[in-house]
Nucleic acid binder design. Structure first.
Lengths: 196, 196
DNA sequence: GTACTTGATCTGTTTTAATATATCGTTTTG
DNA sequence: CAAAACGATATATTAAAACAGATCAAGTAC
């Protein structure tokens, strides 16, 4: 097994532990014998893609082939996602409400491209729900949508979309800022390269 | 071979074609028989990680295990790196100048955490040099750094760092926006959406 | 102290990935 | 047209991945 393989295997093992799964539990999920998982984790085999993906998927991981140039950036993102703070219950609740509302509106067969767009924005935003810190805008959007449900005010969709977009922009900023926040650097850190 | 495998294989094939390599040329680089590459590309085998990484590396690809949640973002980045326009000579020249300057400052043994940070930011930004469209801010940073070299104005480092960060913010926006642009847009986009 | 669970290890078997080499039609090129 | 390069395919061999299943020692729980 090459060095790349070692890293992959380490990732698998770490992911399993993080999820608190035993080899047997993972075995059940992935459909791979426990004995084999043990061998894999000890680096004794050169796994096949099918085994790897079976296990990876059972651990909510995805096998990807990324351009070498993009690899560092991707490591950064992965790390960030890994230790992202959990979404607060409030945020989650608010998002849930929004989802419900959108579903309802959907059932009204408004069928406007603006609505399609809104839904897409919503899905996109949802991927990052754990980065959202305050619920003001979310609540506001909920309010805006009320007038769509009630009076059938389609123009309000436009508004909602605008607000949704504002959240997105905030998140984009946040992502960058968060990186900086990591900064208060250990006083000495004679910097070899960037990780951890 | 599962569906995931299909995608990986498709990526390999696409990457090979993009590089204008024949199966035999790739075979030579990767140390894998041409006949086997053919089988792989036709999806007839369940490859092992060692074969996969050998071929991937020969194609400047890296095999990575990414959190499912981060996968969409990562796909975005990969795609972007793939069909990113080349960095303009001007941008490249400007970045080269900046690198030189930083190197010089390094040699002055300023040794401030702020400088370390600046260097990190620079390295990170450099990964995306091909996304940078105009050189104004880069030039400006160069100017700012002059006063560090000359007068030893350490406070200016803070400034430079801020400017560097502004570039990052701009890039982050660009990323998100481009993402939206790509998605299957409803045919009639009356939604004059608002940003930038 | 008994009963479970954990990860590692063994046995034996089947399946197949990977190898080396050669050839086959089909473009492409000179 | 002839030569070369292309991808697909054939054959035969070797190495090993994957499987099923049992066992083990070390640890944990009740």
């Amino acid at each position: 097994m090459g060095y790349e393989g070692e890293k992959l295997v380490a990732t698998l093992k770490a992911a399993r532990k993080k999820k608190g799964l035993s080899q047997r539990a993972l075995s059940a999920r992935a459909g791979v014998p426990q004995s084999h998982i043990s061998k894999i984790e000890s680096g004794a085999v050169n796994l096949t893609v099918s085994s790897l993906t079976a296990i990876a998927n059972a651990l909510d991981l995805e096998l990807a082939l990324v351009p070498r140039k993009a690899a560092p950036a991707i490591r950064t993102i992965s790390r960030r996602v890994n230790n992202a703070p959990k979404a607060t219950p409030e945020v989650r609740k608010e998002i849930e409400r929004l989802a419900k509302k959108l579903e309802h509106i959907q059932s009204l067969k408004i069928d406007s491209p603006v609505f399609d767009n809104l839904q897409r924005q919503f899905r996109e935003m949802r991927q990052f729900e754990n980065l959202i810190r305050n619920t003001d805008t979310l609540r506001s959007i909920c309010g805006t949508l009320k007038s769509v449900e009630g009076v059938g005010d389609v123009a309000a969709l436009q508004d909602a979309s605008r607000q949704m977009n504002s959240i997105r922009n905030t998140l984009a900023h946040g992502m960058v800022d968060e990186d900086r926040a990591r900064l208060p650097r250990p006083a000495y850190r004679l910097d070899g390269d960037n990780d951890e």
